[in-house]
């Protein structure tokens, strides 16, 4: 059983879940061409929830969270984010995207801009924030992810872990209500995974609503309040982490857990 390698004292009591609905997905279906990637997805996320989505590769978990901020278009069903119905209307998409932050597997920092410029770009051009204020916010979040001293460097000069922390700070600068993480640690060397996970735990403790696609089962066990297992484009099982890991119900879940934790 892999444990979460963190020195932080995780305080689950700070992580409160409210009754307010953050994201509501009902009967969502998506096809890539003729391939049915997401099948009848129903999911309600409450504010302050930390949800980990696990599953074998190709099970549609990344596609699911990419649908939430309209990076992928869904063909059937309904997605409501923070009261806004996701439709083809650009205004709606804009509103949702400014409420939802996203962190990618490969960081996707803009290599031609400094770390600071990466963080201030969207606030200045989308939120229309004065530059001084944007810089202050950016420095605040860079301090939070513990790399304020790198602010004037370029992404190419940073290590993978540092880049991913900048990517998190960049999303936070938009002051999102919900954060999506798409395998944030899979492209990192083992010694860098910890620093990124620490940042994510810190976020959880501040009550951020989080949806994480990840293979870090230690993180799921200790931080998540709900684990969702997906296979073949559908939600197969969901439960509280303790129950999910100790007493999986479905055969597929058991198989998956034995593969990922067994050795």
């Amino acid at each position: 059983m892999s444990d979460l390698a963190t020195d932080l004292n995780i305080d689950r009591s700070k992580m409160q879940v409210s009754d307010e609905v953050a994201v509501e997905i009902t009967g969502m279906n998506k096809w890539f061409g003729a391939f049915h990637v997401l099948r009848d997805i129903d999911l309600t996320v409450y504010e302050g929830e930390r949800i980990v989505i696990a599953g074998p590769s190709g099970s549609g978990k990344s596609t699911l969270i990419r649908c939430i901020n309209a990076l992928e278009e869904h063909q059937k069903g309904k997605i409501v984010v923070d009261g806004t119905v996701l439709s083809n209307d650009l205004k709606n998409i804009d509103r949702i995207r400014s409420e939802v932050g996203m962190v990618f597997q490969h960081f996707n920092l803009f290599p031609h801009l400094t770390i600071l410029e990466n963080c201030t770009l969207a606030p200045i051009w989308v939120r229309k924030v004065p530059r001084r204020e944007a810089v202050e916010t950016a420095m605040h979040f860079l301090e939070k992810v513990k790399i304020p001293e790198q602010a004037n460097k370029y992404p190419g000069q940073l290590s993978g872990g540092q880049q991913q922390r900048v990517a998190i700070a960049r999303s936070l600068c938009m002051k999102p209500k919900i954060m999506l993480f798409d395998e944030p640690t899979s492209a990192l060397d083992p010694e860098m995974i910890k620093e990124v996970l620490d940042t994510m735990i810190q976020l959880a403790e501040e009550g951020m609503t989080m949806l994480c696609v990840t293979h870090e089962m230690g993180f799921a066990r200790q931080v998540a309040n709900r684990v969702i297992f997906m296979d073949q484009g559908q939600i197969v099982e969901q439960n509280e982490p303790e129950e999910f890991f100790n007493n999986p119900q479905s055969e597929r879940t058991k198989l998956f857990l034995s593969q990922i934790l067994g050795h």
């Binding site: 804009d94 990618f104 996707n108 803009f110 770009l121 051009w125 989308v126």
Partner: peptide, 17 residues
């Protein structure tokens, strides 16, 4: 890379920008 455009869209920046 496609990731650049995706990251920018995820931040809410419009296609022209």
């Amino acid at each position: 890379s496609h990731g650049q455009t995706e990251a920018a869209s995820a931040l809410g920046i419009r296609p022209q920008r």
